[in-house]
Simulated assay, not measured.
Amino acid sequence: MSGNKRALTYGNVLLFVLVLNFFLPRLLPGGPIDYILGGENGAVLMSEAQKTALLGYYQLDKPMGQQFLHYVKGLVTLDFGPSITYKSPALEVIKGRLPWTLLIVGSSAVLSILIGLGAGLMSAWRHAGRADRALLLSMVGLSAIPEFLIGMLLLIGFSVQWSWFPLGGASTPFLPSHLWWDRVGDVLRHATLPILTLTAAQVASLYLFMRNEAVRVLQEPFVEFAWAKGLNRRTILLRHAARNALLPIVTMITLRIGGLMAGSVLAETVFSYPGIGRLLQEAILSRDYPLLHALFLVMTVFVLLLNMMADAIYPRLDPRVGRGNGDGPAMLRRAEGVEGRGGLL
């Protein structure tokens, strides 16, 4: 796909998601005022004049068309208005939560990639052996455990039973020490269990994908040719098998990282971690439209940037991708037919 076509595709996807972003929260039953009043029973007493004033303040009393135009203006100016729950600008609320999510999502992404791809490559190298069978059974068993259950088990074991890690939060309030390494250590202690939970939830699928791709590549004729040339095991495994197997996995990795952002909702809820995953849950429950609009925008841009990064990485893994007319996917499909005759030798 050429650069112009790719940019047009990303633009269309972004436009579609932004329009959907406006209507989806409004399709949920109830609304922000119902949440403020305490649900259908109206636990919080409020006069009709107060309700009208509240609707007018958040511009929820206007027709849907005018609300949509106000939403589009907010997209252009990056001003979605004040959060109904936090009474602060929506983007400011997100800025306070985003670093915590990036910490656990980024760390778990790196760990799951290193462990999953490394274990998958080793398992493929020892295909049908004891190590391969043990790793395969372990990863299949791990993939069957839901993410929230992994988090609960870690919380009960390492926080409740042994008190090695805190029960929740991102840092200790009023930490007595003012030394920076004590503060960093405190943040890492709070982030350890959420990171392990997200890593365990992702590592099995990456392992299985890498193992299957590496087994396929190691059976190709060009690997036998590499053995015949007298190349050592390390060169064959890393330069030829791993590099050829990584090409179809790049897209999966970027999608998994994007999924971690949304998947952090469960981990952050279990550990009471103040990231945007938990913030998204709170915004959905409170029908906080400004906050939902800002959150969905941040997540959409994050996923699109990851896909753009995957498009940039593809040609570096295989120079044949993106040559000629720039049609990367078409070149990739044609490359699959010649891979067995020489690969990336």
Rank of each mutant, 00 (worst) to 15 (best):
L255C: 03
R341Q: 13
M64V: 15
G230H: 08
L266C: 06
E268S: 06
L218G: 10
R126I: 00
Y71Q: 12
L20T: 10
L255M: 14
T172D: 11
A90P: 08
L91D: 04
R256P: 00
L237H: 02
S159Q: 02
A245L: 01
A119S: 14
A242P: 01
A191P: 09
A262E: 11
S272C: 01
K5D: 03
G120E: 10
L14E: 05
W180T: 14
A49C: 00
R126T: 08
S205P: 00
N12K: 10
K62Q: 15
W164P: 02
T77L: 12
P290Y: 06
A330Q: 15
G168K: 05
Y86R: 08
V160E: 11
F165P: 08
P221W: 06
R130D: 00
P248D: 10
I195K: 05
W125R: 15
V93N: 05
E48W: 00
P173D: 06
V270M: 07
D61C: 04
T52A: 15
H240E: 08
A294D: 13
L102C: 03
A226L: 01
L154S: 12
H127E: 12
V44L: 14
A283V: 05
F22C: 08
G275W: 02
N4Q: 13
L117P: 02
P25H: 09
T300L: 01
H178A: 11
G11A: 11
L24N: 04
L291T: 10
D182T: 04
Y273R: 05
S123V: 03
G81R: 07
R316F: 12
V265Q: 12
G275C: 05
L246K: 01
H190L: 11
T254W: 00
K62C: 00
Q202N: 15
L198I: 04
G81S: 12
G185F: 03
L149S: 13
K62T: 09
L304P: 02
Q281Y: 14
L142G: 06
A134D: 02
G277A: 06
V105D: 13
A214K: 07
L345G: 13
G11R: 02
F165T: 11
G322S: 11
G141L: 14
L154N: 11
P173R: 03
L279C: 08
V215C: 12
L279I: 04
W227I: 09
R6W: 04
T251K: 00
Q66D: 09
S2N: 15
F296R: 00
I33D: 11
V301T: 09
S2E: 08
P146W: 02
L75W: 12
A144N: 09
A191Y: 06
A131S: 15
L37E: 13
I276A: 03
G326K: 03
I236R: 10
G141R: 01
S163T: 07
E282G: 08
T9H: 05
K87Y: 06
S163Y: 06
S205E: 06
L137Y: 09
L27M: 15
P315H: 06
I145L: 12
F225N: 08
L98T: 11
G328I: 04
R256F: 00
R26E: 05
H127F: 07
M308L: 15
V203M: 01
L153T: 13
R287T: 08
G11K: 01
V72R: 05
L98G: 10
G157E: 01
G258A: 09
R341I: 02
